[in-house]
Amino acid sequence: MDQKSNYTISESDLIKGSIAGDRRMQEELYRRFAPKMYAVCLRYANNTDDAQDLLQEGFIKVYKNLHRFRAEGSFEGWVRRVFVNTSIEHFRKKSAQLSSVSEKEENTIEDADITALDSLAEKDIINIVQELSPGYRTVFNLYVVEGYSHKEIGELLGISEGTSKSQLARAKSILQKKVTQYLSDTKKSFTR
C-alpha cells in the first residue's frame, strides 16, 4: 500500500484493463483503492492481521466480479460495497449468532451519547471500536458508518430489527465508557 497511484489512468481504462487481465491495471486498481478499503476492513476486523486478510479477500472478489460493475453509480462505491459485504460474510463465519432481544429489553436499553469521539484521532477511534465484540462492532459499523437501516442490518445478518437496535445501543454504551476512560487516561498522562 506504500506505492503512489497513477491517477492519469481513467477509471474506465482501469476497469477494462483489469477485466482483460492486464497486471499493470490490476496493480493500479489495488494501489488506488487499497488504502481506503483497508480502512473499511479495519473497522470490521479484530486486528490488523484480520484486516489484511479481509483486504486480500475483498480484492479477489473485486477482480472476479469487475465484469458485473454496470457504471450506474460510482466505482468506488461499488468497490466499497464489495468490501463491506466481504466483512459481513467474515463476521457471519466467525461469530456466534447475536443474542435475540425482547421488545421489553430493547426499550430499557439507553442510547448513549458518543460526542466524546469528536476529540479523538481516527486511529484512536478505530482502536476503540476494534475492542467491541464482533457483533456490536459489525452492527455499529453498518449503522453508523455505512448508513444501513436496522431493517437492512437485520436482513444482512439474519437477526431481528430489535436485536440490531439493541446491539447498536449496547455498542454505543460500551464505546462511551471506553472513550471516557481513554480520555481520562490521556488527561492523566499529560498532567504528570
Rank of each mutant, 00 (worst) to 15 (best):
V101A: 06
A169D: 04
S100V: 11
N127V: 08
R137P: 00
V144A: 03
L98R: 04
I126A: 11
S100C: 08
Q181Y: 10
Y136Q: 05
E106A: 15
K123H: 10
L98M: 14
N127S: 15
Q97D: 11
K177E: 06
G162R: 01
L132H: 06
G154Q: 07
S119K: 06
G147M: 06
T108I: 13
D124V: 06
S173F: 04
V179G: 00
L168Q: 00
K178W: 00
L142F: 08
R137G: 01
I114E: 05
S166T: 13
D111R: 02
K172M: 06
L183E: 13
L132Y: 01
R92L: 15
I109Q: 06
A169F: 02
N141R: 00
Y136K: 09
I125A: 13
T108A: 10
L175T: 00
S119H: 06
P134F: 03
L157E: 07
S166E: 01
L175G: 03
Q97L: 14
V139F: 02
S149H: 09
I128Y: 03
K123M: 08
A169P: 02
A169R: 05
G147E: 08
I128K: 02
Y148D: 05
D111N: 12
E131N: 08
V129P: 01
N141T: 06
L168T: 01
L157I: 04
L120F: 02
L120H: 01
N127M: 11
S164I: 08
A112V: 00
S160R: 05
V144Q: 05
K177P: 04
S95R: 09
K165T: 09
A169W: 03
G158S: 13
S149C: 09
V101N: 01
S99C: 08
A121N: 11
E152S: 14
Q97H: 13
R137A: 02
K93P: 04
S160W: 02
E161V: 10
K151D: 09
A96Y: 12
